[in-house]
C-alpha cells in the first residue's frame, strides 16, 4: 500500500513539475507548482515526517506561491511568443542534462544507497516537540543568527523601497 502511494505521489510531483516548466501561462505554472508542493508534502507524510509535511503546505504551497501569484498579477505578464533557443544555449543545456543524468545514475548505483539498515535513528525533526527541543538547545545559536537574517532582510526591503525624502529646501 505504501509503495502504491509512493509511486502515485511521485508521479504527480514529477508530472506537475514538468507542467510548471512547460506551461506558457504563468498563472497556470504557479498553480501546477502548488500541486507539486502538495504531492511533496504527501511524500513527507509517507516518511512519517509530519511536521515537515505541514510546514511544506503552510510555507511553500501557502505563502510562497501566493507571493508568486501576487507578483505575476502585479507585473501583468503576458504569454510571450516562443523564443528560439540559440544553438549555444541548447548545447549547453544538453551537456548540463547529460551531466545531471550521469550524476543521478552514479548516486543511485553507488554502494551508499544500496546499503540500508533496518534500524533508523529517530530524526530530530519528526515530531514538533523534539524539533522545538533541538531548536532551542543544540541549534540555539543558528536560530538567533536567523533572527538577525530576517531583521537585515526586513531593513533591506525598507531601505530599497521606501520613498526617498525630498531634498530639504533651504529657506
Amino acid at each position: 500500500m505504501t509503495d502504491f502511494f509512493f509511486y502515485l505521489f511521485s508521479t504527480i510531483a514529477l508530472a506537475s513539475a514538468a507542467a510548471v516548466v512547460l506551461s506558457r501561462n504563468t498563472v497556470n505554472a504557479a498553480m501546477f507548482l502548488i500541486v507539486c508542493f502538495l504531492s511533496m508534502a504527501s511524500l513527507f507524510v509517507l516518511l512519517e515526517a509530519y511536521f515537515l509535511a505541514v510546514i511544506q503546505v503552510l510555507v511553500y504551497a501557502g505563502a510562497v506561491v501566493v507571493l508568486f501569484l501576487f507578483i505575476i498579477m502585479l507585473l501583468d505578464v503576458r504569454e510571450d511568443a516562443k523564443r528560439k533557443l540559440s544553438p549555444f544555449t541548447a548545447g549547453a543545456g544538453l551537456v548540463g542534462f547529460a551531466i545531471l543524468v550521469m550524476g543521478i545514475i552514479a548516486v543511485v548505483s553507488s554502494d551508499s544507497i544500496k546499503a540500508t539498515s533496518e534500524v533508523l535513528p529517530e530524526p530530530s525533526g519528526a515530531s514538533l516537540k523534539a524539533f522545538g527541543n533541538e531548536l532551542f538547545t543544540t541549534y540555539l545559536l543558528p536560530m538567533q543568527v536567523t533572527g538577525f537574517l530576517l531583521l537585515v532582510a526586513m531593513i533591506g526591503v525598507i531601505v530599497l523601497s521606501k520613498k526617498l525624502q525630498e531634498p530639504e529646501e533651504q529657506s
Binding site: 543568527v145 536567523t146 538577525f148 537574517l149 537585515v152 531593513i155 533591506g156 531601505v159 530599497l160
Partner: peptide, 13 residues
C-alpha cells in the same frame, strides 16, 4: 549556512 546567508542577504542590500 545560516551565517553565510545572513552575510549574503546583507550584501544583496
Amino acid at each position: 549556512f545560516v551565517a553565510l546567508e545572513t552575510a549574503t542577504v546583507g550584501f544583496y542590500v
